[in-house]
Design a protein around this nucleic acid. Structure first.
Length: 484
RNA sequence: GGCUAGUUGGUCAAGGGGUUAAGACGUCGCCCUCUCACGGCGAAAACAGGGGUUCGAUUCCCCUACUAGCUGCCA
């Protein structure tokens, strides 16, 4: 069996869209599942849309997510260059285009924008234009004269106007279109650069790509690519078109929604493993139905035949849940490394950041959740004494005042402010009084935090706050309750 | 408008001619509990509609509806 070769071919135009990331992931998985090669190719043929630093983002993303490429601009294995602008500079695309002109599959087109505009028609608010093959009928002399005078030109493919074209997609099956629907797409632009449509075919062939994996949005232009392969007499690769990822409104995931790129998600406190895992599940389900997988497990389980045909909504809520699961499952060292910076940013250097990180671990979905959970440690918030009333704890403002007043001397006498010692102390009081745990814990926790809910219970909070601050807050509570 | 594709609970998603139509997120309820969260248990919630084929269709075929993509010198 031939060696499987897949390629990730992004345009360096900005952040890494999650749809692109998933495509890269599937390409990687398909190759690695068969022990094949995963190639990176930079498609920078649209000179107008290039963005500085975008190539670095691509490298960094692949590196962070573990989608390590076997070949690419930085790892030439004999198929280079791997950057289309560098390939263009060699004149290779033009050479292939001219070959097509000679064989009658393509032609020079000198139509200017003005003429093209006259071909446009408006259908339901959308501009639609079909080229009329005007330049196909130019005489050899006219073409030579235009070329000699330096008139700008493009090269277009000459599509047949009758018959049908059929191609096979690994997940959608055979798809047939009428050739008259295919327009004479541009192969070489007037700036000399190839279009995606052309460069893609040339490069995939030259680089020995066996499985062309890409988004669904290319499904309807794929028949055109087949005409190209046939014109060159090249073998057609396997096509695997992936369903699109959409937002909640079933529209293409866009920057507007705020979480359309890998970088957005990182900034929002997500773990790369969780992102990759989640994105893998948008359009694919492993045979064993296990949702949590490492990259290695995905490689082992992935089967592109089981890809979904329909588009998937990017469920941000589920991503958050999954990220929370990943956080809970993290080893301590790795967790502290990630979490402690967020803790310190929220709370400063004075408090025990590690203890706070522990307190918060089971309660966060992203690292951005940390700060709002810990705010009360820095400063006791203003709160209403009504908070001392809790039906289930059987507490109200009067009982709370009583408990706090009685417990204050005990806490003043207590030297060991560790969680265990404090808990033992208060448990003693609870049994002595013959009341429920919550009856005393609730007022203390309230006094010490000023919040309805907190990470950690009364004693855990006091442990972090320390004796002095804990007592200060309890005295404030007593005062508030007394002055009601 | 044309072309192509898609349609299983709100979302992801198994399954596939005969099933009580999985599982997960979310929602709701109960339990656990020094609050919240975690965890445990449970509940509500789906085969777009209409025609065929068939003893039987959610599954196969056709039509309709809806959705998306394409219809760029973008990719």
């Amino acid at each position: 069996m031939e060696n499987v070769r897949t390629r990730f071919a992004p345009s360096p135009t900005g952040r890494m869209h999650v749809g692109n990331l998933r495509t890269a992931l599937y390409e990687y998985l398909i190759a690695k599942h068969e022990g094949g090669d995963f190639i990176l190719r930079i498609e920078d043929t649209d000179q107008g849309r290039l963005l500085e630093g975008a190539t670095d983002i691509i490298y960094r993303t692949l590196q962070m997510t573990g989608l390590v490429h076997d070949e690419g601009p930085d790892k030439d294995k004999g198929y280079g260059p791997y950057v289309q602008s560098e390939r263009q500079a060699t004149g290779m695309y033009l050479k292939y285009a001219k070959q097509l002109i000679e064989s009658g599959h393509a032609y020079y087109c000198f139509c200017d924008q003005e003429r093209l505009d006259t071909l446009k028609q408006n259908v339901e608010g959308k501009e639609i234009s079909v080229y009329d093959k005007h330049c196909l009928h130019l005489s050899k002399e006219e073409i030579e004269a235009n070329l000699a005078s330096g008139k700008p030109y493009v090269i277009r493919i000459n599509m047949p106007t009758t018959g049908t074209t059929t191609f096979h997609d690994e997940i959608y099956g055979d798809i047939t279109v009428q050739n008259e629907e295919l327009d004479d797409m541009i192969l070489i632009k007037s700036d000399g650069f190839p279009t995606y449509n052309f460069a893609n075919v040339i490069d995939d062939h030259l680089m020995g790509i066996t499985h062309v994996v890409r988004g669904n949005e290319y499904l309807s232009s794929t028949p055109k690519y087949n005409r190209l392969y046939e014109a060159f007499g090249w073998e057609i690769p396997k096509y695997i078109h992936c369903p699109l990822i959409t937002d909640e409104n079933h529209k293409k995931l866009s920057k507007r929604c705020g979480h359309s790129s890998f970088e957005d998600l990182l900034e929002q406190g997500f773990l790369t493993e969780a992102i990759v895992n989640f994105v893998a599940l948008l359009g694919w389900c492993p045979a064993d139905n296990e949702e949590f997988m490492t990259l290695e497990e995905m490689v082992q389980k992935f089967d592109y035949k089981s890809l979904s045909k329909s588009m998937a909504v990017f469920d941000f809520t589920k991503l958050k849940w999954m990220n929370g699961e990943y956080i809970r499952r993290m080893e301590d060292a790795a967790y502290y490394e990630k979490a402690i910076p967020y803790v310190k940013q929220a709370v400063g250097e004075a408090l025990d950041a590690q203890k706070l990180a522990d307190l918060v671990k089971g309660r966060i979905e992203t690292f951005l959740d940390i700060a709002p959970l810990l705010d009360f440690f820095v400063e006791l918030p203003e709160y209403d004494t009504a908070m001392y009333t809790h039906k289930k704890m059987k507490t109200n403002e009067d009982t709370s005042l009583g408990v706090l007043t009685e417990i204050l001397p005990l806490l003043e006498a207590q030297e060991d402010y560790s969680n265990d010692a404090l808990y033992a102390l208060l448990s003693g009081y609870v049994t002595e009084k013959g009341v429920k745990n919550g009856y005393v814990m609730w007022p203390i926790r309230t006094a010490v935090s000023g919040k309805q809910s907190t990470p950690g219970g009364a004693t855990e909070i006091m442990e972090v706050l320390g004796k002095e601050e804990s007592l200060r807050r309890i005295r404030i509570g007593i005062e508030k309750l007394s002055n009601r």
